[in-house]
Nucleic acid binder design. Sequence first.
DNA 1: CGATAATCGTTGCATTTGCAACGAAGTCAA
DNA 2: TTGACTTCGTTGCAAATGCAACGATTATCG
Lengths: 148, 148
Amino acid sequence: MVPDMEDLPPFDLSRFTPYRLAVAAQKTSEELARQYRARFGISIPEWRVLVHLAQAGDVSVRDIEARVAMERPKVSRAASRLEEAGYIRKTPNAVDRRLVRLSLTAQGHELMQELLPLAQAYQDDIENRLGAVLDGFEKGIDRLLGRD
Amino acid sequence: MVPDMEDLPPFDLSRFTPYRLAVAAQKTSEELARQYRARFGISIPEWRVLVHLAQAGDVSVRDIEARVAMERPKVSRAASRLEEAGYIRKTPNAVDRRLVRLSLTAQGHELMQELLPLAQAYQDDIENRLGAVLDGFEKGIDRLLGRD
DNA sequence: CGATAATCGTTGCATTTGCAACGAAGTCAA
DNA sequence: TTGACTTCGTTGCAAATGCAACGATTATCG
């Protein structure tokens, strides 16, 4: 006889999509982060801020918050660390003095000339790994992100 | 004329796979976690431990660490919180006294009878959202996870 | 055997995080 | 103009995290 606990419904964590996404995200982010963390002392939040700055030019903290999927305090602290490291500059916006305008310094610009090719190479690597399933894979993520 | 900073290579963060995975993982995990966090006071690490326990029966901390993609201290603390909440029990392993055997209590068993259907329903929902691209999507994650 | 190395789970500690609250600045309407 | 309300970015604080180190136990091998 079985103990008097009723059986639980079967459930396979290793097939659970949110879990799989979390593991895949952690693995891929970490694979790339290893390449720049030691060399440049940049964390993942800082990397995101830098990339958005390189791509979008001058922006406010709130602007980054919206496009980089990070909460404001996280952006703010990442920006402060980057400023202290000399990679970005914060200047007050003359029109709306609540806003802070973030921009790359020359040093930050140089940094991004190293970081961006690294990231692009990693993206190319991922797309090679995905091969024929790349299309369905990216479409799937789009659906989950709600950008059909 | 352009300022004397050379142009940066183009790079679109919103198409960068590690970033997309991170956002998708956060969104889906959070959508589900909202459903149980308030009701049961369970965090995501705790949820993972519980699910693995429900699926695999009694296990050690190291066992969970390997199968749930969490580091040992994280598993250990999640287990301690779950024990304090009365959902799991820690008993010493008689054969190897370094090991701790984690197992669901009756209360934990009841909890899982609510949590597992919730998770399964969410998984079904995700698969519906993915529709025809489900297959390619899951194959893609498999490749990234290195389980070809 | 006995000593060294390896493993298990936990804990200390510094850092990061999430959330709420804050001051400063701007908006809006009376 | 003034007063209430909103928005921006930062900071305080409690909780969570990652990493190293620890005691306890077991494995390995001379």
